[in-house]
């Protein structure tokens, strides 16, 4: 038996919109820790890891670990029927091949339930090693989204370089080149507008902009994004979900050969 009641139902709607472009079908894992997902895109270049901790739910009952395979597009279709202020409850029964989403309006005058068919999904669960990153950039998520969108009109890849000066996003294409440098500005009064750059070693890595743009669908989840880079590792683009957890996107770099 599974019953997860999320008062801020809009969070689940935003999570789905954040990941469904990257991943079509995925197993949602439910345990005492929380509601989580790990899935790769079809070309195995990017990986998304989601965690919604059990403490973030108003009511969280998960009698035993359960994995539910869902089409994210179908789930998004159902969650789009929930109002932004609705309370969302996810219900599942052991051995059942369906999951139920219940939506309650804030005034309790409208209660809907949507039953969705589950699917069997073969997915390999990867071990993501704990890593010390060479550089960690924190910046406004909207600014990062703007940069990825702007650069993708010039080129297909972005070189992200971190130095003492700040973080530089560069691209080149048939029509020319572009460089955008963001400097640390942590003295600003509003923490959500701050850009901070922690650097242990200079880093420069190349990534496909198509994936970066897809990650920025998570922008509505958080005012800030954290970009962790190491020369030997996939970049991690993390959007924290207030009080609850995170959506992390991992993207393997491109290399010259």
């Amino acid at each position: 038996m599974l019953e997860l009641r999320l008062v801020q139902g809009s969070l689940l709607k935003k999570v789905l919109e954040a990941i469904r472009e990257l991943v079509n079908d995925a197993n949602f894992d439910c345990s005492a820790t929380g509601f989580s997902l790990q899935a790769m895109d079809s070309s195995h270049v990017a990986l998304v890891a989601l965690l919604l901790r059990s403490e973030g739910f108003e009511h969280y009952r998960c009698d035993r670990n359960i994995s539910m395979g869902m089409s994210l597009n179908n789930m998004a279709k159902m969650l789009r029927c929930a109002g932004n202020d609705d309370i969302i409850t996810v219900k599942g029964d052991d051995g059942s091949d369906t999951v139920t989403f219940m939506f309650e309006s804030p005034t309790q005058d409208k209660i809907s339930d949507f039953e969705m068919k589950l699917m069997d999904i073969d997915s390999e669960h990867l071990g993501i090693p704990e890593a010390e990153y060479h550089a960690i950039v924190r910046m406004p998520s909207a600014e990062f989204a703007r940069i990825c969108k702007d650069l993708s009109s010039i080129g297909d890849t972005v070189v992200i370089s971190v130095t003492k000066e700040g973080v530089k996003f560069s691209t080149k294409g048939d029509i020319g080149t572009a460089n955008i440098v963001c400097r640390q500005n942590s003295s600003v009064d509003k923490p959500e507008e701050a850009t901070t750059v922690e650097m242990n070693e200079p880093v420069s890595l190349t990534f496909a902009l198509r994936y970066m743009n897809s990650f920025t669908k998570a922008t509505p989840l958080s005012n800030q994004v954290t970009i962790s880079l190491s020369n030997e590792l996939p970049v991690v683009v993390e959007y924290k979900i207030a009080e609850m957890g995170y959506v992390r996107f991992y993207l393997a770099p491109k290399i010259e050969e």
């Binding site: 390999e124 990867l126 590792l233 996939p234 050969e257």
Partner: peptide, 14 residues
């Protein structure tokens, strides 16, 4: 020539 690496190259199956 640039080649795109995959996630599997970095993260092992568990």
């Amino acid at each position: 020539v640039q080649i795109q690496l995959t996630i599997g190259r970095f993260f092992g199956c568990c």
